[in-house]
Amino acid sequence: MATAVTERTGLEVRLEGLSRHFGDVRALDNLDLTLHPGELVALLGPSGCGKTTALRLVAGLDEPDAGRILVGDRDVTHMPANKRDMGMVFQSYSLFPHLTTQENVAFGLKLRGTDRGAREKRAKEMLELVGLGHQANRYANQLSGGQQQRVALARALAIEPSVLLLDEPLSALDAKVRAQLRDEIRRVQLEVGTTALFVTHDQEEALAVADRVGVMNKGKIEQLAEPETLYNQPASHFVAEFVGLMNRVPCHVADGRVEVLGATLGAREGSLPSGPGDALVRPEQLEVAAAEGGSGRVITVSFLGSITRVRVRMPNGSELLAQASGAEAARLAADQVVTVSITAADVLVAPAD
């Protein structure tokens, strides 16, 4: 079912030259990032890359050593967290166990002095928005983990924040609930139109919910792009190998052309300029076919529903992971001799690993 998208009325958020050090550790290194009004940007990266530090600075839970944070036309860099007009959803649900679901959602409004009738009305609206209108009188211990996180989201949105911050909000949930709730968060964010910053280490999560994804490494953003661009046109070797599955295939580069798996392809911008290297190739860009004179041998065939992954050992001892449809993979079996070919028109070449 299509989701109705409201006019994007959120505020622009700008992080300008943010730096943060913890002793000798440089958590953020002159970070620049702009979130457009109503946009959801995900920060993605390994542990220690600086993504959570960036979110904490925006939230006012920490202060930068240098740089500034602007929300709309306000400089909030040194403003207390409770004055920033931001809603935050944490990894832990942080619901008050002695309050009902509706009372939890209305709590922020109560602190702001909103009269009882208005805050009850708003809390009910937010619970309906996240699909929990029928659970208004339940307590936290009577809800599942996914339901508790929906309540936390409703509570963050009830105060009508100018910015919504989400700090790995789904990591404590099981895989099925996580997939359902990430779609729900995106639907709600689109309906409300709030500018949102979403921090996660889960690449599938980031690609599924964000307008743009920033891949962070060592306190910097290596690439900020729409999910499709990030996946299909990674700007660096780090991004290519961090986002999605990637094969390293031995190759040779000369004059902007790449010799790999018996094919000659174009070399993408950022590739090794010449000499031996590793072509970075997605599993879906490899085709595996049974052939008596083939040079590869199937190690495993893993059925994953709509797709099948085939792991092949090559003559040089390296292993390649290919992706095939059910019909193609049905003809393959472990220990079978196969050929491996590449379907990409160009590749990114990294220094040999």
Rank of each mutant, 00 (worst) to 15 (best):
S47E: 13
V163E: 12
T229E: 15
G72T: 10
D174N: 03
G326C: 03
Q323P: 04
A267D: 07
R14L: 02
V349L: 09
G72Q: 13
A210R: 06
L280E: 10
F238P: 07
R68Y: 13
P64M: 07
A156W: 12
E241K: 11
D211N: 14
H201Q: 15
N217F: 10
L170E: 01
A350P: 06
V249A: 09
E63I: 06
D183K: 02
M126E: 01
S47I: 09
L190I: 09
E120H: 06
R257M: 09
A206C: 06
S306R: 11
N82C: 02
A327I: 04
M1Y: 02
Q189L: 05
S302C: 00
L95P: 09
G326P: 01
A345K: 05
L28N: 11
A235M: 05
L11Q: 10
T53S: 14
D75P: 04
E184C: 06
Q336Y: 00
A2G: 11
G60Y: 14
L132H: 02
L109F: 13
K176W: 09
T114F: 00
G131P: 05
A267R: 11
V243W: 07
N104C: 05
G214M: 08
L230K: 09
T101A: 01
A225P: 07
A42H: 11
S318G: 07
N247W: 15
V338P: 06
G266R: 13
A42N: 08
P351L: 04
E259F: 07
G67F: 15
S306L: 06
R150A: 05
A4F: 12
S325P: 05
Q102C: 00
Q91A: 02
V338M: 11
R313F: 04
V163H: 14
M88V: 14
G131C: 06
L55V: 14
T308D: 09
L61W: 06
E63A: 11
D183I: 02
V177C: 01
L224G: 12
P234S: 01
D29F: 06
E128D: 15
S274P: 03
E12M: 06
S19N: 03
L286M: 10
D24N: 11
T195L: 14
V192Q: 14
E125D: 05
F107H: 05
R84D: 02
A208C: 10
V310N: 08
A158Y: 13
Q233S: 14
S302D: 07
D115C: 01
A267K: 14
T339C: 04
T339N: 14
L348H: 11
T194L: 15
K220Y: 03
Y93P: 08
G293V: 00
R212Q: 09
P351R: 11
K83N: 00
L15K: 04
K51G: 13
L28S: 04
G67K: 14
A350Y: 08
A329P: 09
V177K: 01
E328K: 10
E39H: 12
Q142A: 05
K124H: 08
G317I: 06
A81P: 08
Q102T: 00
V71H: 12
